[in-house]
């Protein structure tokens, strides 16, 4: 323990704050479907209807905050993207990141 900690308050208030934010979300999810999860699924299925993409090249980031949560879906889309129906012919191409779909949702408790 360093000297600074001796004089500052301990870590318990941080624990308390983290728990309050986390449990507010988890309690919500018990009673209603997870909004961010649904958005993630639907955004991905919408995009896959129009283009084929490599599921490994999808990055999904979520951050659940106290009053605002963010969902960022980052999809690498091949330059020569093919229609979903042609997915079987699709070779793994050189690709460039084209799509970045981001959703920002108000927190369910607040909304």
């Amino acid at each position: 323990m360093n000297l600074l900690n001796w004089f500052s308050r301990g870590s318990a208030p941080i624990a308390r704050e983290r728990l309050q934010i986390l449990l507010a979300h988890e309690r919500n999810e018990r009673h209603q479907p997870d909004l961010l999860g649904i958005l993630r699924e639907e955004i991905l299925s919408l995009i896959s209807r129009h283009i084929s993409f490599d599921p490994d090249k999808v990055q999904i980031k979520m951050d659940r905050g106290k009053s605002v949560s963010t969902l960022a879906v980052d999809i690498e889309i091949p330059n020569s993207f093919a229609a979903a129906g042609d997915a079987s012919r699709h070779r793994r191409p050189r690709s460039k990141r084209l799509g970045n779909v981001a959703a920002r949702t108000m927190d369910q408790r607040v909304a």
Partner: peptide
């Protein structure tokens, strides 16, 4: 003694949560 020093959640913290 840990709770008093802010190193551990207090009883009130746990009850409130």
């Amino acid at each position: 003694w840990r709770a008093a020093r802010g190193e551990m959640l207090t009883i009130d913290d746990v009850l409130e949560i």
